[in-house]
Amino acid sequence: MLTDAFEVIDKRFTRYAMGNVHLETLYTGTRWAEGPAYFAAGKYLIWSDIPNDRLLRYDETSGAVSEFLRPCRNHNGHTVDRDGRLVSCEHRGRCVSRIEVDGSTTILADRFEGKRLNSPNDVVVKSDGSIWFTDPTYGIDSEYEGDKAEAEIDGSYVYRIDPVSGAVSAVITDMVKPNGLAFSPDESLLYVADTGATHVEDGPRHIRRFAVGAGDSLSGGEIFATSDTGLFDGFRVDLHGNIWTSAGDGVHCYTPEGDLIGKILTGEVVANVEFGGIKRNRLFICATTTLRAVYLNTRAAQRP
C-alpha cells in the first residue's frame, strides 16, 4: 500500500511509487534549500541554503550534516560534471564557477558580451562537456539571496559555455525568468522552466521543451507542462524520460508526453530535486526549510 506522501493521479504512477516507502526528513533548519548535487564516489549530497550563504553536506553513510562551505557567495543550483567536479551557480558572484579536484575555484562564466551576468540560477553539463545555465535576476532583485543591483543585460537568458573555447553564447532569449533545466536521457531534448509569474502578472509558470540539433542548435520551445500548484523550479529526468519537478506542494511527475501522473506531497514549497544513493533511485528533495528523501522504483537517467 502506498503511504500518504504519494498522490496517484494516473495509475502509471504506481510503477514508480512503491508501497510502504516513506518520505524521510533528513535535515531541518534551512531558510531556502536549493541546488542539490550528489557525489556517488563519496556517498554524499551537497545543497544550498541561499539566504544563509552556505552549502550543506549530507553524509549518506552516517546521516550527519555539516557545513561544506560558508560563506559561498550565495550559491544556488549545482551539478557534478563528468570528472566529478562541482559546478555552481553563484548569486552574489554573478557567475558560474567550478571547484577543481585540488579544491581551487575556477570562474567559468561571469559576463556575456562584456556585461555582467544577472545571477546564474541552475546548471547542467552535457555529455560533450558543454555547460548550460539559466540567468534570471533573482539574486540581484533584493538583498535576501545576493546583492541587490541593476541588471546589465537587457533580459534573462539561457546560456551555453563551449567546452573547448569557453565562449559563452545565448541559446534561449525569449523567456521571462528561465529557471531549472535538464536534458532528456538521449540529450535530444532540453527542458527549461520559466518562473516569470514572479515578475509579470499572469506570467509563465511552465516548462518548455526544445529539440537539440546539430552543433547544439535549439528549435521548438513549445510548452511541455504548466504548474497547477505554485511554480516549477528545478527538476530531474529519470531513465524512462519522466520529469520529476519541484512545485508548490511537493514534487510532480510528468511522463515524456507531458501527462501529470502523480505527486510526492511535502507540505512545503519544493525548489529542486536530485537522484542519488548507490543505485541512483533515491530522490533527494530540497523543500524550503528541510532536506527530504524518498526511494522510487526508477533511477536517474544515464548520461550518453
Rank of each mutant, 00 (worst) to 15 (best):
M1T: 08
T3S: 09
D4H: 14
V8I: 15
V8W: 08
I9R: 13
D10Q: 01
K11Y: 07
K11T: 03
R15P: 12
N20F: 06
V21C: 05
H22C: 15
Y27Q: 04
T28V: 10
A33L: 12
G35C: 13
Y38K: 06
A41F: 08
G42V: 00
K43H: 05
Y44G: 00
L45S: 03
L45M: 13
I46W: 00
W47K: 04
S48T: 06
S48H: 11
R57F: 00
R57C: 10
Y58S: 03
A64R: 09
L69H: 03
N74A: 13
N76A: 09
G77W: 06
T79L: 06
T79Y: 04
T79G: 05
V80W: 09
V80S: 00
D83F: 15
D83I: 12
D83R: 06
G84V: 08
R85S: 15
V87N: 06
C89N: 07
G93Q: 00
S97F: 05
E100V: 14
G103P: 09
S104P: 07
I107F: 05
L108M: 03
A109T: 06
E113S: 12
R116E: 05
S119I: 08
P120G: 12
N121C: 07
D122S: 11
D122W: 02
K126T: 10
K126R: 06
G129H: 04
I131N: 07
F133N: 11
T137A: 12
I140Y: 01
E143M: 14
E143G: 01
K148D: 02
A149C: 11
I153G: 02
D154S: 13
Y157T: 06
Y159W: 11
S165Y: 07
G166D: 09
V168F: 01
V171Y: 08
D174F: 10
G180W: 01
Y191S: 10
Y191F: 15
Y191W: 10
G196N: 04
E201F: 01
H206I: 07
R209C: 06
G215C: 15
L218T: 04
L218V: 11
S219R: 07
G221W: 05
G221M: 14
G221V: 15
I223F: 08
D228V: 14
T229E: 10
T229G: 10
G230H: 04
L231I: 10
D233F: 04
G234D: 01
F235M: 03
D238H: 00
L239S: 15
H240A: 11
I243L: 15
D249K: 08
G250K: 01
V251T: 03
C253E: 15
Y254C: 05
T255H: 05
T255S: 12
T255I: 12
D259S: 03
K263G: 09
K263R: 14
L265F: 08
G267E: 09
V270I: 13
A271I: 10
N272K: 07
G276T: 02
G277V: 11
G277W: 03
K279M: 14
K279G: 08
R280L: 14
R280I: 14
R282K: 12
I285K: 02
C286S: 11
T288P: 10
A293C: 12
N297Y: 07
T298A: 03
R299M: 12
A301S: 15
Q302R: 13
